[in-house]
Write a protein that binds this DNA or RNA. Structure first.
Lengths: 205, 205
DNA sequence: GAAAAAATGGAGTGTCAACTCCAAAACTGG
DNA sequence: CCAGTTTTGGAGTTGACACTCCATTTTTTC
């Protein structure tokens, strides 16, 4: 999974410390962005010393990559769970509700963890950009496979362009999350997903 | 328009200098984000001294607000021009091509100026968030009015939920721009807009 | 054309943030 | 239980960055 730290073997305790650091960094970077999150903030939140942090990560950049991997695992995990057996419109609605519950739970703060990191790092860190592109590729694939399965099951017409719809759905999701974040209102993400599903409904046989 | 600097009257020369500063700051902040853009960078790019910068803006935050206003004017200007007489699907396609030309011209770098600022500032600067929310509101309104006009003209069925479609379109646009930015490929934004238009086409009388 | 206001130059200042270093404590494997 | 390895503590150090200050030049106003 994580290929950043190599060479030194990690004790159970060490793994726990490392995880605490990544957790703290993930939370803070989602809230404030990468550049505004200081190493000292992370130290305090995670309850570790400077030497510990630099024992597990070569520098802040290295930590950022670990945060990307961590958030990718979390986000893709949530969506994989819901989309794995995407075989009906009912299942799609369950996914929809789950996404919106998450947004509501955070009161629209932070936006999408991957989207925020992407916007933050796209132009300043090529390695981070590539890794985020990969994560979004996997996410898109999840939607692609799900919609293709729906088509196979006869829920959608055979000529439905599921690949395009999957990409458009991901775009709508990202944009909806961003708009919900700045408006502090779940309406945009709700409308974005519902409209995507409505479009899908026009493609039933 | 700009309500940040008040009290002192501006000479023509002063206005030019101020504009040079805002232009430079806008470019740099779009490329690197707000926190990674230093005052010194802006000074060099704009060709001004520190005292000039602090003569026109009380602090970096104040400059950020000016950048938001500037980018809002630019972005909304571009879209207003295209959407003003949105009375047919042909006009919608013209708008689509224009948007994608802009993205292609920048080689997908930077993403949407407003979207990037929004993601950057949403959680750290409440005033900036409010102002960006307002800009997105105006943008949404542009689309709302355009689609409503299309419906009035009989291009769309009377029961078409143009308000929802406008919001979903803006979301798809934002998400598509973000995905195009991290993939360095215009495909996501193209598919996002085209899918939105395709959905609209299903609503013709 | 002179007083007032605005625009500019550029050196300086205090703070903060990333990263280093050396030593000590805790743990692991044989 | 001991040698080697991993983990931890915490006080520096270096550089960068936002912002200040005061003097000087340019422009406006009457």
């Amino acid at each position: 999974m994580t290929l950043s730290t190599s060479g030194t073997r990690l004790t159970a305790k060490g793994m726990a410390t490392r995880a605490r650091i990544v957790d703290a960094a993930s939370d803070l970077m989602l809230e404030r962005g990468v550049a505004r999150t200081t190493i000292e903030d992370i130290q305090e939140t995670a309850g570790v010393s400077a030497s510990q942090l630099y024992h597990y990560f070569t520098d802040k950049n290295d930590l950022v990559l670990a945060v990307i991997d961590h958030q990718s695992d979390l986000v893709l995990g949530i969506h994989q769970e819901s989309l794995d057996r995407l075989d009906s419109f009912a299942a799609l609605e369950v996914w929809r509700d789950k996404v919106i519950d998450v947004v509501r739970a955070t009161h629209c703060a932070g936006g999408c963890p991957l989207g925020s990191l992407a916007s933050d790092l796209a132009e300043t860190d090529p390695i981070a950009r590539a890794r985020l592109a990969r994560a979004f590729g996997l996410w898109e694939e999840l939607l692609r496979v799900g919609l293709a399965a729906m088509r196979e099951r006869g829920e959608l017409r055979p000529d439905t362009p599921t690949d395009d719809l999957a990409l458009a759905m991901l775009a709508g999701l990202q944009g909806g999350l961003l708009l919900s974040q700045i408006r502090r209102d779940t309406q945009p993400i709700e409308v974005a997903i519902d409209t995507a599903i409505a479009h899908l409904r026009t493609m039933r046989p």
